[in-house]
């Protein structure tokens, strides 16, 4: 009880968090806590009004982030985080909207919602915590599991090629695409800040260590070993061709890959709405 009170009283990020739910239930060394910290820091540095902020999360370990943030937040059904966020954006275009979810939620069951939201360029910030497997259900093989790595459902090594999430987002038409690891805390915070200020469909992939479920089957005995591995294999290259930025166990290219401007869905919708209204008025007057 004393620890929670100290956290509520003194921690600078406590005003953005539902402190009564802390300490959180994520495993020792999980990257999700770091992502939550970076997100709250980005909110703090931008001085975003949390009454105007909506965070949507899907199913998975990172899905609990909606319950930990002290703002209007939704924990949706499996894979439908972006679908619900699309509805929120169309209902109220003045809100700051962020979707924080996992790789299994956004890219396996919710894959179609993701590519079509990116194609339409709906104004939202999507942060994907990529932990390489379905962590919450026991570490099954997912669409982002690197080739030849071990999971509970691939005990002799994975033979499926993984998704290259940044290439997928860039090809589908996202205006801002970046990839960081949970180790690059300063750069990740800066990237989230940049994404929250930009208009359009922004995608940030965060490679997050999953020591308990993924790590222990792939020769990472402790969380810190997984973090050291991220430090060794990650390479910062801004503006790199996302099609070549595949994640392997030997190399992870991180950085900002795409940063372009494009009219968003709501802007086009608003223009079209005004145009149709004028046309109808002329017709009625005539």
């Amino acid at each position: 009880m004393k620890a929670v009170q100290e956290f509520e009283m003194h921690h600078p990020m406590a005003k953005y968090l539902r402190t009564e739910r802390f300490p959180h239930i994520w495993c020792e060394g999980c990257g999700n806590g770091i992502i939550l910290g970076c997100f709250t820091r980005a909110l703090d540095e931008l001085k975003i009004n949390i009454d105007k902020l909506v965070v949507v999360s899907g199913i998975g370990c990172i899905g609990r982030i909606a319950g930990y943030l002290r703002c209007d937040s939704f924990h949706t059904t499996h894979g439908r985080a972006i679908a619900l966020a699309t509805g929120i954006r169309l209902a109220n275009p003045n809100l700051t909207l962020a979707v924080i979810s996992g790789d299994g939620d956004l890219f396996s069951i919710g894959g179609n919602h993701f590519i079509h939201a990116a194609r339409r360029n709906i104004d939202m910030t999507v942060i994907c915590s990529n932990n390489f497997n379905y962590g919450m259900t026991g570490g099954q093989l997912g669409p982002t599991t690197p080739l030849h790595s071990y999971t509970t459902t691939s005990p002799y090594g994975n033979i499926e090629h993984p998704f290259n999430l940044v290439h997928l987002a860039a090809a589908a038409g996202a205006v801002y695409v970046a990839r960081w690891t949970a180790l690059h805390v300063q750069r990740l915070t800066a990237s989230i800040k940049k994404a929250l200020q930009k208009k359009g469909f922004k995608f940030i992939e965060v490679v997050s260590p999953c020591p308990e479920i993924f790590g222990r089957r792939n020769n990472f005995k402790k969380a810190i070993e997984m973090m050291r591995w991220l430090k060794d294999v990650s390479e910062i290259r801004h503006g790199y061709d996302p099609s070549k930025a595949e994640i392997t166990m030997e190399k992870i290219v991180v950085g900002e890959f795409v940063d372009v401007e494009k009219p968003t869905y709501e802007e086009l919708l608003q223009k079209k709405y005004i145009k149709v209204q004028e046309k109808l008025r002329e017709k009625n007057a005539g």
Binding site: K2, A3, E6, F7, H10, H11, F22, P23, C27, E28, G29, L183, K222, A223, I224, M227, R228
Partner: peptide
Amino acid sequence: WHVIEDFCKGCTFCIEF
């Protein structure tokens, strides 16, 4: 520098980095 001791799960990221 402060630490909320009962929140720590012992990942040692702070010590390492």
